[in-house]
Design a protein around this nucleic acid. Structure first.
Lengths: 216, 216
DNA sequence: TAGATTGTTAATCGATTAACAATC
DNA sequence: TAGATTGTTAATCGATTAACAATC
């Protein structure tokens, strides 16, 4: 698989891989048939069968002609491709109500599923009232501790849940601390240098987008 | 604008309109120049100038050649196009920690900005322990009250923050209650009939997607 | 073997960009 | 007027779909 990565995989493809993985996880949990065709995998993930095959083919040959894909095997391969076969350690910056919700959700998921490897392991906030508080047995630290903690705790992803006005500054600090993947919830257009990956979850943008369709 | 809607506007276009609106809001708040070119609007929203002009042209002629777009005017037009020029009433279903966070965020935004018209006005949850509780001066009601409340309160959007296992059922109830726009936070592929619009915010999908890039 | 489904190439579709006449 | 920028058309680019030989 790494062999084939010289050709850059488009973002549209990468976006669908977790969708496929989820379907395989569900099939595994439900004890469905050991085999799944691109037709069924596509059906259950909302993607055409041809596109499923094309997406997977970027990374290797995982199926058997006339048979389909072996659920357990394809699932393991997708986990490797997405780097989800090992623990990924995450720092969360901004411990407001959304931050709380994300920590809670993540802890639950992490503890009830031993194959779920995304793990929030460090919390940061600059509000003096929050410093010293603990959440899920993690201390809330000042942002200035980020470089040190990032190194010691091997943080690889940062989740940013601070107000929009502080977000760019916080992201800059993350980049300085060597973090190369950031999930931003602040409603702001942020800039990161090449090589750093930024994903945005913008709830108010989604709501405004939905409002458009009310006029139809 | 409504005149031109016989030709269906693509989802990619609709997705960018709130981006433009946000830039105009910010320019307005900052008291920037009264005029903005497609170049600047594009720069600040991360879209090419040509695409900005093309997107806007679907809805009318809002600019002046040689001059640009009048910030206040274009903003008002975009608000109309997005139906954000009047109050949009929203029901929230599933009052867990994420639901709490969304209510809190929405109330704050709604009260501090009198032009922000997206308003969560009704709360639902089926957990008996939560029924009878109040949140931000709204009672938490059972889901079975949805059809009645949707009618009385003129709910137009539903936000779904229930567990994945309950999400399809909840969405079906929303549709029955006449709601035609749904924002789903549950990590599940949901099905809605034609004419109903579904937007998904899937945090774990975004995280898994980011994890991919850690391998580069 | 016969039937089914993959991996892959060619065709299509749609979205973005480039270019420029119109015009403020 | 001269310079600038829109609205719009044509060209390009990339992503999806259709089709099918390979093969299990």
């Amino acid at each position: 698989m790494a062999l084939i990565r010289w050709r850059k995989i488009s973002d549209a493809v990468v976006r669908r891989l977790p969708l496929y993985l989820r379907v395989l996880d569900e099939a595994m949990a439900a004890g469905d048939s050991k085999l799944m065709s691109s037709h069924e995998l596509g059906e259950r993930s909302g993607v055409s069968p041809a596109l499923v095959r094309k997406d997977l083919a970027w990374f290797g040959e995982f199926g058997k002609q006339g048979v389909g894909y072996e659920v357990g095997y394809l699932r393991e391969e997708l986990r490797k491709i997405l780097n989800l076969d090992r623990e990924i350690r995450i720092g969360l910056i901004g411990i407001g109500s959304l931050g709380h919700a994300l920590v809670r959700y993540n802890q639950q998921r992490f503890h009830e599923d031993d194959r779920f490897n995304l793990h929030i392991v460090a919390l940061f906030d600059n509000d003096p009232a929050k410093l010293g508080q603990w959440l899920d047995s993690m201390p809330i630290r000042p942002l200035e501790a980020l470089p040190e903690v990032a190194r010691e705790q091997h943080l690889q992803i940062a989740i940013v849940t601070v107000p929009a006005s502080a977000a760019q500054q916080v992201v800059d600090r993350c980049v300085e601390a060597g973090i190369r993947a950031i999930l931003n919830f602040a409603p702001a257009k942020l800039v990161v240098p090449p090589g750093v990956h930024l994903a945005n979850v913008d709830v108010s943008l989604e709501m405004q987008r939905l409002a458009y369709y009310l006029g139809e």
